[in-house]
Design a protein around this nucleic acid. Structure first.
Lengths: 91, 91
DNA sequence: GTTCGCGATATCGATTTTGATCATGGAGGC
DNA sequence: GCCTCCATGATCAAAATCGATATCGCGAAC
């Protein structure tokens, strides 16, 4: 599933054009991204929680040389799946 | 940021009522949730990728009794942040 | 206002994530 | 439809997280 599929699903349910649907998806992802960059956590009950968290480990590896590489500061975004996504059966 | 905030941001940009905005958010999360439950991965360039992955570890622990508990089959949803979300500076 | 999901907590150990880099397949802009 | 730019995979090692469970408190959502 890619952006087009989501927009497609949206326009199948609500009376919006595909262009508008794409705008919506774009806008929402942008807003959420912005909020996450701002250090804000996003909680959607029944779906999941996006949480920006500082990266603790600072060591990586250069695959060519095989040597360890220092990883600078940074954050990582963790997504914690909600209840509905945790109770999934293997189909 | 919660669902209302997202809907709010949506109606500030596009000419939709708050009720419609909430419907949109609800619909999208539902669709995405559904796709993930279906084992489908969702890729949105510039935002991130949701990927259902089989859980390999099958052992948990009951904290009350202290005994090991078998973890049944299942999946976990991993969210891999996109480029824009990885290149974040620590504020 | 009411309900119910989610965080926190504690435990333990196997799984996993995390980063650089380069090539390639594919998402998405035009 | 094409072209561009982004995501993926692979590697390695260590630190961190994820599972399960139960319960209370807070707050999201109706």
């Amino acid at each position: 599933m890619i952006k087009i599929d989501i927009a497609n699903a949206l326009m199948q349910t609500l009376p919006v054009s595909k262009a508008t649907a794409l705008q919506v998806v774009d806008l929402l992802t942008d807003r959420m991204k912005n909020a996450l960059l701002d250090g804000e956590r996003i909680e959607i009950r029944g779906f999941g929680v996006f949480e920006p968290r500082p990266r603790k480990r600072g060591l990586g590896r250069n695959i060519k040389t095989g040597q360890s590489v220092e990883i600078p500061k940074g954050k990582s975004i963790r997504f914690k799946a909600g209840k509905d996504l945790r109770d999934i059966e293997v189909k």
